Amino acid sequence: MKMGQGVEWALHSCVNMSWTPVGEAVSSARLAEFYHLPAAYLNKQLQALVRAGILASVSGPRGGFQLARRPERISVLDVVLAIEGDEHTFRCEGILKDAPGGSMDADYARTCLISQTMRHAEVTWRTELSRQSVAGIAQAIERRFPEARQDTVSRLTGIRT
């Protein structure tokens, strides 16, 4: 499985916004400049997060984006699904129906051991991502890089924390 780069961009953006003061919006242009990313494409990712209820869009001269809910209530899975969609990564096509001894009436998506294995792996992957929050990542970054929060907020908003 391969996720698009938008997932990485969205997760970093959410972590950055988790550090900004409540009510303070960050423009997509500033985020794009911060990471040297194409602004239009980053903005598309941020809009997907707005549609998913992860971010709120703020209009006006100091507008931009801010978290729509507390960072501990935003899982990594929430962000991945907002950017990549909710389709399953593996789709059983039921090719066993046409194999020797196959049955047209069988539900191979449920009974095929390969399908079961892949479904189990995806459930495990989704469960692990749902356990990790934006707040948890932000806290881990702060422990490892104590200056990261202040430096990031200063660069994105001009505010010294």
Rank of each mutant, 00 (worst) to 15 (best):
L37H: 15
L42W: 13
I54F: 10
L49F: 03
A48D: 09
E33K: 14
V58H: 01
R70N: 12
N43L: 07
R73K: 13
Q66Y: 00
W19H: 02
S75W: 09
L46M: 12
R62M: 03
K44E: 14
L55A: 07
L77M: 13
G60C: 07
T20C: 05
Q66E: 02
R62G: 04
R51C: 04
V26L: 05
A25P: 05
I74M: 11
L49P: 04
R62K: 12
V76W: 10
R69D: 01
S57F: 11
T20W: 00
L77H: 11
Y35I: 02
R70I: 01
S28M: 06
G53F: 05
R62F: 05
V58P: 02
V26K: 07
P71W: 07
I54M: 11
P71N: 13
A32W: 07
L49Y: 03
N43C: 09
E72N: 14
V80C: 11
A52T: 08
V80G: 08
G60N: 09
L77T: 09
P38A: 15
N16Q: 09
F65Q: 06
L42S: 14
G64W: 04
W19A: 00
G53P: 05
Q66F: 01
A25W: 05
A52S: 14
P21F: 00
L81V: 14
S75V: 11
T20H: 00
F34C: 12
P38D: 15
Y35A: 15
L37Q: 15
Q66K: 08
L49D: 00
D78E: 11
P61A: 14
Q45A: 06
V26E: 11
G63L: 05
L31D: 03
V76E: 13
A56P: 02
L31I: 03
A52V: 08
F65A: 02
A68Y: 08
S57P: 03
Y35V: 02
Y35M: 15
P38S: 14
A48E: 07
L46D: 07
S75N: 11
W19P: 01
P21E: 01
S27H: 07
A32M: 06
V79E: 04
R51Y: 06
N16F: 06
G23E: 03
E24G: 00
A40S: 15
S57G: 08
V22M: 00
V50K: 03
L37G: 13
R51N: 12
G64S: 05
V26Y: 11
A29W: 07
A25G: 03
A29L: 12
A32R: 10
T20G: 00
Q47D: 13
Q45L: 02
S28I: 02
R73V: 06
A32H: 10
N43V: 03
D78W: 08
V79Y: 05
V79L: 09
L49Q: 02
S18R: 02
A32T: 05
A48F: 04
Q47S: 12
P71D: 14
D78N: 14
E33W: 12
R70V: 04
A82S: 12
Q45I: 01
L81S: 13
A25E: 04
I74F: 10
A32K: 10
D78K: 06
W19V: 01
K44T: 09
L77N: 11
R51S: 12
